Simulated assay, not measured.
Amino acid sequence: MSKHQITKLDTITRTRLSANFFLRDFLFSETAVLHGVNNIPDDIELAIAAGSQLCEQVLEPIQQAWGRIHIRSAFRSCEVNQLGNTLGANCASNESNYASHIWDRRDAAGFMGATACIVIPAYLDYYQKTGDWASLAWWVHANIPAYQHMFFFPSLCAFNISWHENQNAPQTISSYVIDPNTGHKKRILTAGVASEYYQKIPLAQRYAACETLLSKMEP
């Protein structure tokens, strides 16, 4: 890589996506590092446009409420995502990830979108004691209307959260983690409809644990 290319890349990664997030925050990939491949957008303008919406509409309000969030992974170049898919590293096909982890490609319907996998440190101690990821999921559902999908993972209560240009598409909440309230891993929100168990519980009660935690965080 030439000095000119390094300077250009450095300038690109300094792009500010929102008040507290920069493009560089979303580009690190262990897969890319280990295999020596680039994780840089091909379409810089599209990646910035989609990433800015994810940051402004979804990540900033979460961080404002919970304090600093940790970006576990986010943008994937087509090359990195395909490698992850080939290696069986929990990466869906490139086409499935357009307008999701692959920010710089529109989906088949022509919409842009972006996904990040995040951890909320302020929630982590509670999660490790209880295994309760669902309370956080319902808090996000109630307070971050611009999200499109959430998918929770066992480690650190990390979860994928997406913004999508088509805000009329129904929201979903899925998990690889057993929900201690139901004893299974089935979706708790499908096509915008809560599962049978949660339909019986008022929305505010579904995330009461979050309200308790947030009240203790207030100065």
Rank of each mutant, 00 (worst) to 15 (best):
N85A: 07
V177F: 03
I44A: 08
A191D: 15
H149N: 13
M1E: 11
V177K: 11
N81D: 07
S162M: 00
P121G: 07
R14K: 15
Y127G: 10
N181Q: 13
L27N: 05
L34N: 13
A137N: 04
P145I: 01
R106F: 04
A134M: 00
Q128E: 15
I201A: 12
G192K: 08
N90Q: 14
E60T: 12
C210L: 13
C55D: 02
I40C: 13
Y197S: 03
R105S: 04
N97F: 04
N38G: 13
V58F: 01
A169M: 11
T130R: 08
P61T: 04
S18P: 01
S52Q: 12
R206H: 02
T15D: 05
W66V: 10
V33C: 07
A114W: 00
I120G: 08
N94M: 07
T115Y: 03
Q53M: 14
A99K: 02
D104V: 12
E45T: 13
G113M: 03
S162Y: 00
E56C: 02
I178Q: 12
W139H: 09
N39A: 10
I62N: 01
L46A: 02
A158Q: 11
I161C: 09
V33N: 11
M150R: 07
H101R: 12
I69L: 10
G113R: 01
D10C: 08
S29P: 07
D10R: 10
K200R: 15
A32L: 03
E218M: 12
D10V: 07
L156Q: 13
L124Y: 09
C210P: 09
I118H: 02
P219G: 14
L136I: 11
D10T: 11
